[in-house]
């Protein structure tokens, strides 16, 4: 075997482990049998038709979309403020404050979810889509800050000074110079937090009350064997839309870097 041969085998094995289950999704989504097993029984699109006829699922999808849009907009807005503050200003306990904001990134989500549940019930907030949105903002904001502070960091501070120097106010400078230059980061943050919120399970499970989100609905459907192919069809659609969203996010991130003439120093993809 040639040099690096074992490394190739390892890489191949790794990729198969990672992607084979995802590849199975569309295969069984179009398979004409209620049992998930080989050999395949034939081609059908009936699982997709069933999928769109299911009112509970449509409700869950609508819930998830409402939550994901709200959470991504809120967490990105908070992310803009925090990133601007942390890259531009010095203030006391900056490191500690930023660390606290970024903490949900590493805390077990179930701990956060249980803690939030206890607090919300304790102060008498009824569980609803709103409480899920709160939980998702908590989880999404650190991601938003990670993306946006890179975008703000890449901004040359003298661009702002140049705009003041040429007669602009701080507000018009933000609108004319800073916002357009960090816009790719904002779009990227919106898309990524949207994706995170859309498939988040634990927070939604604990905080949604009677309103199921899409992942919670999927989980509950696994109790019924006959529903599994429908879930496969749904999974296929979700994988496709996730790939699409992340690609768009990455496209904007790279374009932003090219536009400001910076160097690519990594990112999510």
């Amino acid at each position: 075997m040639m040099k690096g041969g074992w490394f190739r085998v390892y890489t191949l094995g790794y990729l198969i482990f990672l992607y084979a289950p995802i590849v199975l999704l569309p295969i069984f989504a179009f398979n004409d049998a209620a049992v998930i097993a080989f050999p395949l029984a034939g081609f059908t699109t009936k699982w997709f038709t069933q999928l769109f006829d299911e009112p509970a699922l449509r409700g869950a999808l609508a819930n998830s979309l409402i939550i994901a849009v709200s959470a991504s907009v809120l967490s990105t807005t908070l992310g803009i403020f925090a990133s601007r503050a942390t890259t531009r200003y010095k203030f006391p306990f900056k490191g500690g404050i930023m660390g606290m904001i970024m903490l949900p990134l590493v805390l077990p989500e179930i701990i956060l979810a249980v803690a939030l549940l206890v607090v919300l019930l304790g102060i008498g907030v009824p569980l609803s889509l709103f409480t899920v949105i709160l939980g998702h903002v908590l989880v999404c904001t650190p991601f938003s800050i990670a993306i946006l502070s890179a975008a703000f960091q890449a901004l040359d501070g003298s661009l702002e000074e140049a705009a003041y120097d040429l007669g602009e106010t701080p507000i018009s400078t933000f609108r004319l110079i800073i916002l357009p230059l960090v816009m790719p980061g904002i779009i990227s943050s919106l898309l990524i937090t949207f994706t995170i919120s859309l498939d988040e399970f634990i927070m939604a499970f604990f905080l949604a009350g009677t309103e199921a989100t899409l992942p919670v609905y999927i989980f509950s459907q696994f109790r019924f064997p006959q529903a599994v192919p429908v879930i496969m069809a749904l999974g296929t659609l979700l994988v496709l839309s996730s790939i699409l969203l992340l690609s768009i996010a990455e496209y904007f991130r790279r374009r932003g870097i090219a536009k400001t003439g910076g160097k690519d120093t990594g990112g999510f993809l």
Binding site: D156, S158, L159, E161, A162, A163, P180, K259, T260, G261
Partner: peptide
Amino acid sequence: VFQSYAIFPH
């Protein structure tokens, strides 16, 4: 005129 020129890149 800034040292980095501060030309608006967009």
